Computed example of a mutant assay.
Amino acid sequence: MKGERGIRPLTIGRKNWLFVGSEDGGKASATILSLVQTCRNLGINPQQYLEGVLRRIMQHPAKQIDRLLPDNWLAARQNAQ
């Protein structure tokens, strides 16, 4: 049952996504939704994750961008505590 609930927002939003504006807009939406769902699967609050990443991203080295992925972000937070 949990799996069905997980895809429900995708099914409900399907018609809305026909109007994302452009192919780039669709890709951006897919990226954000993927990050949010990954956070949920890892037990991370998606809002806290996105806020934390957006606050750090401008100062973060591009070569270390993988450190901002949800699983690495969670590990860094756990190590800091």
Rank of each mutant, 00 (worst) to 15 (best):
L10N: 12
G3M: 10
D24Y: 03
R77Q: 15
P9M: 03
R55V: 06
V53Q: 04
D24W: 03
N72T: 03
L50S: 10
Q64K: 06
V53K: 01
R67N: 03
R5E: 14
S34W: 06
L74D: 05
L74K: 13
G25Q: 04
W17F: 11
A30S: 13
E23N: 09
M58I: 08
K63W: 01
I44Y: 00
G21S: 14
G6D: 09
S29W: 11
R40G: 00
R5W: 10
L18A: 12
Q48G: 01
Q37L: 04
A80P: 13
V36Q: 07
V53H: 02
A76V: 05
Q81A: 15
D66N: 03
S22I: 12
I65H: 01
R8C: 08
G6N: 08
I57Q: 06
G13W: 03
L68C: 05
P46L: 03
N72F: 00
L42S: 01
T38M: 01
M1F: 05
E51V: 09
S22P: 10
E51R: 10
T31N: 09
S22D: 10
T11G: 06
M58A: 08
R56I: 01
N45M: 03
G3E: 15
L69A: 06
G3F: 12
P70H: 02
I12D: 12
K15T: 12
R77H: 07
S34N: 14
E23M: 12
I7C: 13
Q37I: 04
P61I: 02
N72R: 06
V20Q: 09
G25H: 02
G21D: 14
N72S: 06
M58V: 09
E23P: 05
Y49W: 04
K2Y: 04
H60M: 02
Q48N: 08
K15Q: 14
T31F: 13
Q37F: 00
S29G: 10
A28T: 12
E4S: 13
I44F: 01
Q64I: 01
P46D: 04
Q64V: 02
L54K: 12
I7Y: 07
R56Q: 07
R77T: 07
K27P: 06
T11D: 09
T31E: 15
V36T: 14
E51G: 06
L33S: 09
I65S: 05
R56T: 03
I32A: 14
R56P: 00
A62M: 08
L68H: 02
E23Q: 10
W73S: 07
T38D: 03
I32P: 04
L54W: 07
G52L: 00
N79P: 08
G25W: 00
Q47T: 15
L33R: 15
P9R: 04
R40C: 00
Q47N: 12
R8P: 05
C39E: 02
Y49P: 03
G13I: 05
T11Q: 11
N41C: 02
A28D: 13
K15R: 15
N79S: 11
T11A: 09
K63Y: 01
E4W: 10
S34I: 02
I44V: 09
A28E: 14
M1V: 11
Q78V: 15
I44L: 07
Q81S: 11
S22A: 10
L10I: 14
H60T: 05
I7V: 13
A80T: 15
P46M: 03
D71Q: 14
I7M: 11
N45Q: 05
N16K: 07
W17S: 10
L50C: 13
G6Y: 03
K2F: 04
L10F: 12
V20C: 14
R56K: 07
D24C: 04
N79C: 10
I44S: 00
